[in-house]
Amino acid sequence: MSLTTQWDDGEHSGTGKGRVPTCSNSQPSMVFSMLDALNVEADSCVLEVGTGTGWNAALLSERVGSVNVVTVEVDAQNASAARRRLGTVGYTPTAVVGDGAEGWKPSAPYDRVLITASLREIPRAIVDQTRPGGIIVSPYATEYGGEGVVRLTVREDGSASGPFVGSSAFMRLRQQRTQRKHVREYMGGKPWPADGKRSTTGLSPDDVGDWLPMFAIGLQTTGVFPWAEQYEDGSYTLWLRDTDVTSWATVDYVPGAAEFEVYQAGPRNLWDEVRAAYHWWSSQGRPGFDRFGLTVTPDGKHYAWLDAPEHPVPTVEHTA
């Protein structure tokens, strides 16, 4: 079980919950599985992005010595508290307050990089500061949802590539957070269904709502994200919106139904795109996280693949 240690970027205080958790101690099994994927050797120089409570920095310092560990934390309050904890137990890694997406160039190059916040893009600076043959382990999330831990190996040409090693659910790196527009912004002030075009579908919204299919859908789609509006009787409306605030769709889930009502509006038919992505994943045998991988090219572009880099995951074309 994870333990939340900060809410609302430190603006919330007291014993109750805030609105959004912004720092936590990850569950031990996740911590140890990511460290296992990192494969730290005794003389490795390690960069950690996201100090948090300092737990990972302590484990890394025990393994390779504090002199070989750099840990970067954007939140000054968290960084100060972590530094005190680390010092109390005798660890003195280089602890930096700064933007983790920029890494820490003064101590580069690194043999290993551990990122403890969810990313939509692997920062170019992180790849550049990792020596060829070095390993980057990071949670990687899609815009649509779903997230997995990826293990990238950096190459001589400045690219990085590797497989996903399991699922994850981390807080987003602050520099890669997004602000969502309310659904009303998509309908121009008109009540639902506004100018949406009605159709029906045999694919249940429940089928596209689990973490793994969300991940697979997100690898294929661009700029589309879901939100579920729940009702007391167990039904719900799946809302789909695009990040350009041009298109939306709704799919109404009713328990036990065989068909579901769909409305779509805008230049993109978002439900059609999500449905196509789901059917591709299903046609491939519903692969798990461990069959997917990610490549970051020398110019910073990202593409996902299935089983091998030579088999890129297709991108669903925008439908209208």
Rank of each mutant, 00 (worst) to 15 (best):
Ile126Arg: 02
Met187Tyr: 05
Asp128Gly: 05
Ala108Met: 12
Val137Arg: 01
Ser138Ala: 15
Val67Ala: 14
Val127Asp: 03
Ser167Val: 13
Ile136Ala: 02
Ala249Ser: 15
Trp227Cys: 06
Thr243Gly: 08
Val262Thr: 08
Ala308Pro: 05
Ala308Tyr: 06
Arg174Gln: 11
Gly133Cys: 10
Trp248His: 00
Glu229Arg: 10
Thr71Trp: 09
Asn25Trp: 08
Asp307Lys: 08
Ala141Val: 13
Gly293Asn: 00
Val183Asp: 09
Val137Phe: 06
Tyr278Trp: 10
Gly158Asp: 09
Ala160Arg: 07
Thr319Tyr: 06
Gly223Arg: 08
Ser247Ile: 00
Gly256Pro: 08
Pro226Gly: 03
Pro139Arg: 03
Ala257Thr: 00
Met214Glu: 15
Val46Glu: 05
Gly166Ile: 04
Ala258His: 11
Lys105Thr: 10
Ala125Glu: 12
Glu273Arg: 01
Thr178Ile: 13
Tyr253Gly: 04
Thr15Lys: 09
Tyr140Leu: 14
Ser199Arg: 13
Pro255Met: 07
Leu306Ala: 00
Phe292Ser: 06
Val245Met: 09
Thr200Lys: 12
Asp36Lys: 14
Gln179His: 06
Val49Ala: 11
Arg124Val: 08
Pro93Ala: 02
Val89Phe: 14
Pro139Thr: 02
Gln27Ala: 13
Leu203Phe: 12
Ser66His: 10
Gly16Ala: 13
Glu121Cys: 09
Trp239Thr: 04
Gly134Lys: 03
Glu62Asp: 15
Lys301Ala: 12
Asp299Glu: 15
Asp36Thr: 14
Arg85Leu: 04
Asp244His: 02
Val67Tyr: 08
Ala249Tyr: 05
Gln77Trp: 07
Ala304Ser: 14
Lys197Phe: 03
Thr221Asp: 05
Val69Leu: 02
Pro139Trp: 00
Phe292Leu: 08
Ser26Lys: 08
Lys190His: 11
Gly134Pro: 01
Glu310Arg: 11
Thr4Glu: 03
Gly300Ile: 12
Val316His: 01
Trp281Leu: 07
Ile136Arg: 04
Gln77Asn: 11
Pro93Ser: 03
